[in-house]
Design a protein around this nucleic acid. Sequence first.
DNA 1: GTCTCTATATATAAAAG
DNA 2: TCTTTTATATATAGAGA
Lengths: 112, 112
Amino acid sequence: MARNKVNYALIEDASKRKVSCNKRLKGLLKNFDELKTLCDVEVATIIYGPYRNEPYTFPNNDVVRNTFIKFKELPTLERSKHMVTREEFTMQRIKKLEEQLQKVRKEIGSRK
Amino acid sequence: MARNKVNYALIEDASKRKVSCNKRLKGLLKNFDELKTLCDVEVATIIYGPYRNEPYTFPNNDVVRNTFIKFKELPTLERSKHMVTREEFTMQRIKKLEEQLQKVRKEIGSRK
DNA sequence: GTCTCTATATATAAAAG
DNA sequence: TCTTTTATATATAGAGA
């Protein structure tokens, strides 16, 4: 994806593959996080990587379990809307930091 | 992400949110597809969007079903060991933003 | 292995049609 | 709305420490 365009096929070199895998996993989790935050989409993911036996889950085990139950049973579960206090808090924090960054960067830009 | 940087918060405008949601879903599925192909990672995802009753699944319903069953059978302890919780993820994000802020502020300081 | 850097590919917000 | 286009932000392959 950068420097060189990558072939749409298994990366043969094992160490390159591992590095790529970790970078892409990170990117994927960010995408999920943003989709959930910006667009209010409910996601549940299990990822089995080749480098550990236990899977990665997102956003967390409970949600994954609940989403699966919902998926299996199809009748819509009424979901609690009152369990995001901490998440809201950290979200605000991130927003604020990003605004500060923007501001400071703009200040730099105007001096160049 | 383009033209303008987007705030890390729910997109208030409903039609913008929908457009963004669809674009991001598309991107996310592409990411999954590439991770699976390039790095031989097994993934299972359920995504409930606000615009249809049926969830999106990747790679397909059967794999999702099987993967989640497999996940359910893991002992709880093993499961939580490598869980990527959303909280952890946001903490990392905050840390990174703070580092950037520090760096940029230092740059400003050195010019004054 | 693990971080950082950075050039390039890609994703995507907003505009235009 | 939806598609297509474009400008910008972001992700990431490869390199170097």
